[in-house]
């Protein structure tokens, strides 16, 4: 293909995106678009799967059977989201095995938020309310992302995530109006999860070099800072309703901008956790590797049995 042909294809591709048409797996797309999406969708898939660990951690200890059932259903949803998203990556020509190998070797990233520990029951509430709440801001935007399979997966995922967010908020609400010890547990969880949740939106726009290209391709439609601000505005009010305090002394309503002004994210902490030095980075990766290695004989048995069965069918 000549350079002119590629240029024409790129123009056609961009025209399609500008016209709000979805890009489908068989359509031509620039290599960089494909690479960006494979990276983004696989990171998203890994986040769902690694995210099962801090929450799964509390299934056996949930303090009522109703909460145990809700948590089981929620973590099961996360596994399902992981599956859709690995399939979405496969539509771009990267196999699930390869994608998972990249996670296990530490090459691929997942959301850093899951490198924080779940220390008390209230953390399950905080994760639903804040972490899923922050994730939804991104995911609602991604329902309109330019790559068709990703957008369609997100529509399904968003429906379930909004249920997750509500159940998390409800856990917090019950704790906040419970005994003093319960309220203290809820406030402590909010204190620990607030800033890491804000970090989930990524670097500030000024420090996010790929954002402009992603916006042009309509992979992203809102900037990190815009999404973060919307999340803060919404969540501050939710905290007020249940009587919990956001751990930010600089938080203040700004009547002029009609938004909350707020403090500063500790980017040193953010960079540290991304670099692998968060409280649980090693544990999370070790747990995934252990599950994968212990499951090797199970997957081999399934393949061997399927092959035997196919052979018998052929012989019959």
């Amino acid at each position: 293909m000549s350079m002119t042909d590629v240029k024409n294809l790129e123009e056609l591709f961009q025209a399609k995106i500008d016209a709000e048409l979805k890009i489908e797996p068989k359509d031509w797309m620039p290599d960089a678009y494909r690479r960006t999406l494979v990276r983004q969708i696989s990171q998203h898939a890994h986040s769902e799967v690694v995210g099962m660990l801090p929450e799964g951690n509390w299934i056996t200890r949930a303090p009522s059977l109703k909460r145990k059932a809700i948590l089981l259903a929620k973590v099961q949803d996360e596994a399902g989201h992981g599956l859709y998203l690995y399939s979405a990556v496969e539509t771009m020509g990267t196999s699930r095995e390869q994608t998972i190998d990249d996670l296990l070797s530490g090459k691929a990233k997942y959301s850093s938020i899951f490198n924080y520990p779940t220390l008390t029951w209230a953390d399950i509430g905080a994760i639903g309310w804040l972490v899923d709440g922050a994730a939804i801001m991104n995911q609602v935007m991604l329902c309109r992302t330019s790559y068709g399979p990703y957008a369609r997966a997100m529509v399904r995922i968003c429906k379930e995530e909004s249920f997750h967010q509500r159940q998390g908020y409800e856990i917090m609400a019950v704790l906040a109006k419970g005994s003093p010890a319960q309220k203290e547990m809820a406030q402590d969880a909010l204190n620990r999860w607030w800033w890491p949740s804000l970090m989930m939106f990524g670097p500030t726009d000024a420090n996010s070099p790929h954002s402009a290209q992603s916006m042009k391709w309509k992979i992203k439609r809102q900037s990190n800072d815009e999404l973060r601000q919307t999340f803060i505005d919404r969540t501050v009010q939710q905290a007020e309703v249940i009587g919990l305090t956001i751990p930010d002394p600089d938080l203040k309503w700004n009547a002029e901008t009609k938004h909350y002004d707020w403090g500063t994210i500790d980017w040193t902490e953010f960079n540290n956790v991304v670099a692998g030095n968060g409280p649980c980075n090693k544990e999370r990766l070790a747990a995934r590797n252990k599950a994968h290695n212990n499951g090797a004989w199970v997957r081999e048995a399934a393949v061997a049995y399927a092959a035997k069965k196919a052979k018998r069918k052929q012989a019959a």
Binding site: M52, I59, A69, L72, Q76, A79, K290, A291, G295, V298
Partner: peptide, 22 residues
């Protein structure tokens, strides 16, 4: 069965086991 959650041999089985537990 709930102890398996997140540690299954393959993602489909994580789903099956949590489903059973539920």
């Amino acid at each position: 069965l709930g102890e398996w959650c997140g540690h299954g041999p393959v993602l489909e089985e994580d789903i099956a086991l949590t489903n059973r537990a539920l």
